[in-house]
Write a protein that binds this DNA or RNA. Structure first.
Lengths: 264, 264
DNA sequence: CGCAACATTGAGGGCCCTCAAGAGGTGTGG
DNA sequence: CCACACCTCTTGAGGGCCCTCAATGTTGCG
């Protein structure tokens, strides 16, 4: 069979969200995601809080506070109108972060695949969440009550340090993002986005591969461009001989040129 | 003799800093900035770390670590090429945060007036600073060594909590900023910017005043537009009867209309 | 096959940038 | 004192980038 389009992950997303059953290759790809074993607790905390493994005491403290629940496909995970009194993380699954507009549609700004934080910051400021979030598939969500956690941080300073580092990383990432939105045009942003998702092929180095795990329209959303513009840019890069696109697989033929495109 | 443009930034600001008088209303608005006295230590920490006053022990711990030094006008404060091993705050003065370009010019992205953090996040991640920074006038800069501070946080959990809250606020602000850059056009961004700097006049409420503490080109920088566009937008708002501009003083005639302009 | 969703392609237009010129203001040197 | 240099802001003309709208092609599904 061999369809030209490799694993169109985009299609199932909406259908899944609409409660429509999945079949075929798309479903297989998505199911593969689900099959990925839920991260063990230790792995979860390491992925969320970074580097070195936590001490047993620290891990135990988190376990005691953590409340895990499952969010069905299409359901809301965070709401801007709800007060944030817990830190929210995604253990497994995919969640779209963005904004629910007045007319009920959802404008995706970023897609998160577990394990990762969904909202590490809002609870500390006493405000509501900054973004809405919607499960793209069955999602395991972990919540840590802020008040109780704060009390435990006093006992386990190592945890406080982890939280600080996590927030600091988030600040850095957002600062870079802001800079790029302010000063880079669409081609540069796309080149940058592709470049930082390159998976090297065992080759000596100038070639690579980027696998798109989301619909192209969602990629466009993250880059603050329209799907049409994304399509045109892909074609433009292809004409320049920098990439080759087949469906959801992008072959990077010249990583150096790609990096140069990302500069301006 | 050094030429007047030795420091490439902010002529009115730098002139003011050099003790040169500005005439007219513009000068009056800008001069108000300089009059602000240096914050006391207690005020400094409260401004940086938020709400409730710190305990004596906490304040003492910070004092013991803090290293204050003065940066002369035009000098660099942070550098993207330098490893960040301290948290950096501005006690008093004005500093431009942005990027030094290859050709030596400085692209301002944000202007900070003390007391405020200049870089609360970089030191925790072990990377270099995310932005360059340059003093617009004589600036008192406070640095806290990260390693030593981390050790003290274990003893004073309250401080760790403050740092977490500070970082969380920064994340929230950046997230809002990113959202606005992605989804709002230039008029909306300007309206938003003006609206959140409104100083109410004792009137019943629909009128207000915005004092520009920086050159209009720096305001434009913060909004990611050109000075020309800013000028045209100001005129456009004026024609709509929403604001009245005279020099560095903006009178807001209709805050409701301004808020509406900020929506789209 | 008809239908639905996504991606692609083209035509047209709006927003905002670039370039250029001019006014107003302020120090500097003759 | 006055011409001059230099900076900032403003205004206009022109153009490029990217969006909007519409049509078409592909794939998967009933």
């Amino acid at each position: 069979m061999e369809p030209r389009y490799a694993a169109p992950l985009g299609t199932p997303v909406l259908r899944e969200a609409a409660g429509i059953r999945l079949a075929g290759e798309a479903g297989a790809a998505l199911r593969a995601t689900q099959a990925k074993a839920m991260a063990s607790d230790a792995e979860l905390w390491r992925a969320l809080l970074g580097g070195a493994p936590l001490s047993d005491a620290e891990a135990g403290a988190l376990e005691a506070l953590a409340r895990t629940h499952t969010v069905p496909t299409g359901q809301g995970v965070l709401s801007r109108s709800a007060a944030a009194d817990t830190l929210v993380a995604l253990r497994s699954g995919e969640v779209a972060l963005g904004f629910r507009t007045a007319d009920g549609t959802f404008r995706t700004e970023r897609i998160v695949r577990g394990p990762a934080w969904l909202d590490l910051s809002s609870a500390w400021t006493g405000d509501t969440h900054v973004m809405d979030a919607q499960a793209l598939g069955p999602a395991q969500v972990v919540e840590l009550p802020r008040a109780a956690l704060a009390a435990r941080l006093a006992v386990h300073p190592g945890l406080a340090q982890r939280v600080i580092e996590g927030l600091a990383r988030e600040v850095q990432a957002l600062a870079v993002n802001t800079h790029e939105l302010m000063h880079k045009d669409a081609p540069a942003r796309l080149a940058q986005w592709l470049h930082q998702r390159c998976e090297p092929v065992d080759d000596t180095g100038n070639q690579a591969v980027v696998r798109l795990h989301e619909r192209k329209r969602d990629v466009a959303s993250q880059l603050a461009i329209t799907p049409e513009t994304l399509s045109r840019l892909m074609r433009s890069f292809t004409r320049q001989g920098v990439i080759e696109v087949s469906g959801y697989l992008v072959r990077v033929l010249d990583t150096v040129a790609l990096e140069r495109l990302a500069q301006a």
